[in-house]
Design a protein around this nucleic acid. Structure first.
Lengths: 241, 241
DNA sequence: CTTCAAAATTGGTATAGACAACTGCATACC
DNA sequence: GGTATGCAGTTGTCTATACCAATTTTGAAG
């Protein structure tokens, strides 16, 4: 249940373990948990560590405490975890389609004023421009142009672009995208777009302009995309507060 | 700043104190706080207690920590009252336009299977169908058809519809919409739509299909809208947990 | 000057123990 | 019977300390 040899925090192991018991139904809503001292003695860890584990679950709404009585499993959460930032890859996989992409263009360019504005960098700072066609089950779905500040994401190569930019940023550079603002509008395809997307000239497309931010609010990328309107629907889940 | 005589928890006093400094602007977003050890020594309280105070603020999103660097004030929560669930009225007002609407149709009808599905009610249950044109500064922006379960929202009248359905639900019936799922797609206007929106036949429109839920997950309304693509952009803010 | 390694700094995890505040229950008292 | 007291058990707060992990700074070597 808890392995002290593992270099995974003990409180985290315990929290996960309890969470599993809740999810699996071993612990039912309203039911009381073992006391903090019981956990502490049984698992041979300090009570403060137990509290840290429980705190995490209380904060996430899985448990609640009553002083003098004990700790209990909360009623099922109504609010499911959340609105996700889905990448094209995740998005298509969720729809049961096989995502892929074809690189059209990859270049290090000086930022135009427009791009610089969105990335909050100086005009003419170096940015990578990555233009790709996104496919799902080998059918063209969208044209996507990414602009990424070269000072933030160093050492981007064609090879990485052909794999996953996000995975590179997250795993290698520890840059995790936490927020994004998207603007979605609809218009008609330009001739060159129509050709790339294999649709007829003047067919409707959805244009998405997106700026993605790191946890501290630094803009990480600016993306312009054009999706085939006949194949793509955009879904958002929203909740208040 | 911290009074040990008071029988208010120390960590709570400290958290409140820091919170005030943030709210008053003494501590600005991105700025770093004193280190945990500094707080501990200056206030003569244990570092664990300082951490408990900081934890509270981190959990509430006012601070964030970076191991090895320090603790910082988070960016202002962009999260305006509603992240995204904007009614047409609020939306247009936010854009500095004067919203209005024209009622085209108001009727109590039996739910079709499709509508019943979305509202999670039985087929042929009574639902209100409200069809309106939405205008901004007297320019047609969208056609909107609302379906609302008559068992949930009783006593809806033409008069109420001409004012605000949401205000009626919230103030009179205490039904507050907490969540919504929207699907946005793009297509071309049908002739009758084009006429109502005063756009040319076959011009692009954005179709939004939205189901709104109460806090307990009960579907409250199902809305189909068609927005003029030349006038309307749809913006979403997203953040990861 | 640059480069690289070591040291210092900072938050992250964990321990052991103490006392406070609250709950529930048993007991003693009137 | 009703009330008060006390006790045991629970979570809440707090201390003092230790070491780990990530980051920055320092300083020596080249």
């Amino acid at each position: 249940m808890i392995d002290k040899q593992l270099h995974i925090p003990l409180y985290y192991q315990l929290a996960q373990s309890i969470q599993k018991q809740i999810d699996s139904g071993d612990l039912k809503p309203g039911e009381s948990l073992p006391t903090e001292r019981e956990y502490s003695e049984k698992l041979n860890i300090s009570r403060m560590t137990v509290r840290q584990a429980l705190n995490q679950l209380v904060n996430n709404g899985y448990l609640y405490r009553v002083q003098g009585k004990g700790t209990f499993v909360a009623e099922c959460k109504i609010e499911k975890p959340l609105t996700g930032i889905t990448s094209f890859t995740e998005d298509m996989m969720a729809r049961g389609l096989e995502p892929s992409s074809k690189l059209l263009h990859f270049e290090l360019i000086p930022a135009t004023q427009h791009i610089a504005n969105h990335l909050q960098i100086k005009e003419n700072s170096p940015v990578y421009e990555v233009k790709r066609i996104r496919l799902a089950d080998d059918v063209p779905m969208a044209i996507e142009i990414n602009y990424i500040s070269a000072n933030l994401v160093k050492g981007l190569t064609e090879k990485i672009v052909n794999q996953s930019i996000y995975a590179y940023m997250e795993d290698q550079l520890n840059l995790r995208i936490e927020q994004a603002t998207q603007t979605i509008e609809s218009s008609l395809a330009e001739p060159n777009e129509a050709q790339l997307l294999q649709i007829s000239d003047g067919a409707p497309v959805m244009r998405i302009q997106r700026t993605a931010f790191l946890h501290d609010g630094t803009p990480a990328e600016y993306v312009l995309s054009a999706y085939r309107a006949d194949r793509y629907k955009f879904t958002v889940h929203i909740h208040r507060k």
